[in-house]
Design a protein around this nucleic acid. Structure first.
Lengths: 105, 105
DNA sequence: GGATTATATCAATCATTATTGATATTGTAT
DNA sequence: ATACAATATCAATAATGATTGATATAATCC
């Protein structure tokens, strides 16, 4: 009768975090990038060529992912190698599932 | 070395579906609505008053959720009662977790 | 040094979506 | 039928975010 949801500070903060995470990964190209990186680390040129995206657009999406902490990068010669940040992905997945799992029975 | 990800029809279709789902639930107010509805079914006026949202905005978000199949509605007198569609939420959660779970080890 | 390659940034545009205000619809009651 | 309450719809605006083209930076090689 009295849902406490969405009212106390903790609940609000969690919802906000989950929403941010979801916004980052709800973009199709970023989903694809994550999909690629979960199998191998890759340089930018491999990613944009594989996904047939513009180079600067790919850089942009990588930046969004990196700013949120879902991927990391290292310089290797001319190339910048991106890899997935498993810990972060796991952390947010867990938080998300705190919501989603409690729906089904 | 050769990620098959994002290339075959099935993979593309799944990514697209997941992205659509994520877009629907990545909006903070809609997340809150889902949060409320997972505990109780509620009429529109209870929802917008509880969340302190405009009535028409609440209707809009409910429509987005309903169009995607995540909630259902029934008329009861003057009121329209919304409830969560557990099966659908579960279905998309599963699909999403096919992606997310395979990240962390 | 200059030339080349890989990546990032910046400004502008385009597209999508959230929000708002006004109005329409629907059900109920008098 | 009129009045009222709950909800939905519509048009307009505001805000956000994706995409593009041009340019800048950084590392490497000659």
């Amino acid at each position: 009768m009295k849902p406490k949801c969405c009212k106390n500070k903790k609940s609000i903060a969690e919802i906000s975090q989950v929403a941010e995470f979801l916004k980052v990964i709800s973009e199709e190209n970023r989903l694809k990038i994550l999909c690629l990186l979960k199998k191998n680390e890759m340089c930018v040129c491999d990613i944009w060529q594989y996904l047939d995206l513009a180079q600067n657009l790919t850089s942009h999406h990588l930046k969004v992912l990196k700013d949120f902490g879902l991927v990391s990068s290292k310089q290797e010669g001319l190339k910048v190698i991106y890899s997935i940040n498993k810990k972060a992905v796991k952390k947010y997945s867990k938080l998300l599932n705190k919501f989603l799992n409690s729906y089904g029975k």
